Amino acid sequence: MKIAFYGSSLLSSYWNGAATYYRGIIKGLAGLGHDVTFYEPDAFDRQQHRDMEPPDWAKVVVYPATQDGLQRVVARAGDADVVVKASGVGVFDDALLEGVVAAARPGALRLFWDVDAPATLAALRASPGHPLLRLLPALDLVLTYGGGPPVVEAYGHLGAHRCEPVYNALDPDTHHRVAPDPRFACDLAFLGNRLPDREARVTQFFLMPAARLRETSFLLGGNGWDDRAMPNNVRKIGHVYTRDHNALNSSARTVLNIARDSMAATGFSPATRVFEAAGAEACLITDAWIGLDLFLTPGEEVLVARDGMDVAEHLSTLTPARARAIGEAAGRRIRAEHTYQKRAAQVDAILRDAMAERRERVPA
């Protein structure tokens, strides 16, 4: 199928946590024979902070973040068999959704791909006139970055014909173990941008243990932390390009995953970082969230922390041998069950099924 995909950015992870997810899914779909064009706006300095150049498995169209640029790429939706509008593009989101749904040809599939379902659903509940609510009946399918049964049920109640979670995963060719790099040597590393619904949990699960364990080294990567006061044993390194994620995950004694408030409340939404860390066979410590055991077994493939005291306890008692065993077990599990090749096969099956449903519902 010819797929037109309108998202935040395929080429840059700068202020764009969905980049790895997009890359894994689209690369996998290309491997199954789909022809994907990804449309991304030139916004938020992402093009100045690219992690990659346009790949050979997708065509990338970077358009000006202007009304004229918007209109040009909206018109291209009519060329595709499948039109995908992702959440969180960041500019002209509502106009882009309305435009591509209207421009899609009658026989094409129209999809909304939600890469932050808790935030989107909260916005829909707060705004009865939201364009997505009005357009849901015209969409063939909603795919989500995660969310499990609560998100599927919520979208169903709002009028979606069908909602399917497609979780994060691992591309073993991209994320794997490498030689340790002194730049990222530490006892605990956390990688995440500073966001309003994340900061309190970063304080609880990362900064409080750092203040308690003054002889332990902590590494903080991500945008927005420059002016935040930190204990002296926390080293801030700013934005970490995806090309360095393997080195970071292979160099830290342990790696921390902290879900944002909304993700932790919803559950069933493992972050990209979980799979990247497991691919590098890092010993992962994660805050607790519903559905974790569907991906990794607590105590054997991942360490779970209910609060900052648990993080401090793990760091104080974890031996190098156990850390290695946990990381290796996580790597085996994720490579066996949770790769983007498997996710792409899932999406391929969903698209073919949805296309058949559309033909029944809207005869040519």
Rank of each mutant, 00 (worst) to 15 (best):
H175P: 00
A58Y: 05
D68R: 13
S87V: 07
P128V: 02
Y145E: 10
A103I: 05
V83L: 01
D51S: 09
A123T: 12
V73G: 11
R162L: 14
D171A: 12
V166R: 09
G148L: 07
D140P: 10
L70S: 03
R125F: 04
R76Y: 01
P64Y: 08
P106T: 01
V62H: 02
A119C: 04
A117W: 04
E53T: 12
A108V: 01
P165W: 07
H161A: 15
R162Q: 14
A108L: 04
L133K: 11
H49W: 12
L111I: 15
F92A: 07
A108H: 03
V142G: 06
Y145N: 14
G147I: 06
D79S: 11
L97V: 11
E164M: 12
A169N: 07
Q48L: 15
G78H: 01
H49G: 05
L143H: 04
L141W: 01
V74R: 10
R110I: 00
A86P: 00
L97T: 12
K85G: 04
G78I: 00
L111A: 04
A169Q: 06
C163E: 02
A126S: 14
L133M: 05
G147T: 07
Q71K: 14
L109H: 01
V151R: 07
K59C: 10
A75Y: 06
R110L: 04
Y145D: 11
V84Q: 01
V101S: 05
A77E: 07
P137D: 10
D51W: 10
P118A: 03
L141F: 02
G156W: 05
L143S: 04
P118G: 02
A103P: 10
V74S: 11
A77D: 07
H161N: 13
A75W: 06
A77C: 09
P149Q: 13
D94C: 03
G107S: 14
Q67W: 11
D81S: 01
T66L: 03
P106I: 00
G90R: 07
G90Y: 06
A169V: 08
L139N: 09
V101T: 10
L136D: 05
P137S: 09
Y167N: 14
E98A: 12
A104E: 09
P118D: 05
R76T: 14
